[in-house]
Design a protein around this nucleic acid. Sequence first.
DNA 1: CGCTTTGTTGAACGGGTTCAATTCGCGTGG
DNA 2: CCACGCGAATTGAACCCGTTCAACAAAGCG
Lengths: 243, 243
Amino acid sequence: MSIHDSPFVRKLGAYVALSDPELALLEQFHQNRRTFVDGGDLVYEGETNSSAYILVKGWVCSYKILSDGSRQIVGFQIPGDLLGLRGVLFRTADHSIEPINEVEASEVKTRELLGAFEACPRLATAILWAVSTDEAITVERLVSLGRRDAAGSIAHLFLELGARLKLVGLATGNSYQCPLSQYLLADALGLSAVHVNRVLRQLREEGLMTFRDGTVTFDNLDELVALAGFDKAYLDYEGPMLK
Amino acid sequence: MSIHDSPFVRKLGAYVALSDPELALLEQFHQNRRTFVDGGDLVYEGETNSSAYILVKGWVCSYKILSDGSRQIVGFQIPGDLLGLRGVLFRTADHSIEPINEVEASEVKTRELLGAFEACPRLATAILWAVSTDEAITVERLVSLGRRDAAGSIAHLFLELGARLKLVGLATGNSYQCPLSQYLLADALGLSAVHVNRVLRQLREEGLMTFRDGTVTFDNLDELVALAGFDKAYLDYEGPMLK
DNA sequence: CGCTTTGTTGAACGGGTTCAATTCGCGTGG
DNA sequence: CCACGCGAATTGAACCCGTTCAACAAAGCG
């Protein structure tokens, strides 16, 4: 399997044209493959000198635990995403990262990553683009928490995940496999699991979308997009922007 | 006035040791100084080929308008912050940027910025660090919207702003000047202005903090920090990390 | 086969919204 | 100098979206 098959490498290449030495460095990043399952987090909040990971297979979520014991999920990551970068850049991880299903990820240690930035600063430029996409996603989630109601917020999240999965070739048409539980959704949406359940039923009964047995189906895409105020522009990229 | 006096340059230098050519490029960035007042946004959502700005004086907010007319403020920026980077990287701005008081900012045009990334990729590395700090701030705001109650959320925002102002030398001790209206606070916190007003009164009457006539005062810092679950670690940086 | 996790539904409660009215400071024009 | 208008702050009362508590069903698993 070639390095070019990695969704992560293809993503970076879409932002910045990559030279051979840069591709070689990225190949290095993929050497240390690890597997994670339920129970063992990839990164723990507060951990120092945590590694970054390139997610190859499966889903993870990034989250924070509050002093009252409640939890806020900051985002979900899917194959091709880079995890735990802030933990490397700032020496201490400001959030935990938990596998949602069976996960395979390439570990990139602090020294490797910073060394790569020294050797090929253009790589850092490409990663700047990737991080900016992540930030756009985080901002949309923030808007959902602040100003969208529960139905709009849920619809927006499923539309976002669908669009992101399509970009890495893991979804086609109007449905996709989704390993999230209603509890995970609740912690991501700032809602209770009970209410997530009710709103999912409502969306299903209104013929907008169905989430059942790990499968999301968009039954009426146009109305769902209108309800969520969803505009996929923030996820798309066309490149390379830097030759 | 030397280029080293710019809070923005000092911040980047704290992440990555900057060479003379890199400092010269940053000096270029400061050539095109502009002034903004109430009514004219620096960047409009949907605008193509918008510029980036280095904020020199005054405060701005980044926001999005939803289809129902409501607004979500994504963040506040203060002197030393870089604005509108995503609008440059992705050709289209995904949010608007509005001046809150009288603002001075150095405009950095798309070509300048991308040209600088070509010429000095280490600059992009430094900006990657800056963007990651911004993302950490956005994530904390997301946590507030999702899981903190109104009082905790308000307290957290004021503590965050105080800590950020201290880092650029615009606050000392237990108080600072704050140009935000209760309407701006409401749009940032996902609350109504009415409720912001009530919670501010409650915080004042409980002796925790006072926000009046444009001045924030922390009357009981310890209890306020506890109420907000505030940990300033995500704002601090010690560098340079890359020599 | 019992135990745990996830999903489902009902009923009562509550934090925050909405609507509405009042006050206060301040700039502007007559 | 004062009347007027306007944005921001303030407060009360009714309402509602989402929470909490509680019970039960269904599925997976040792």
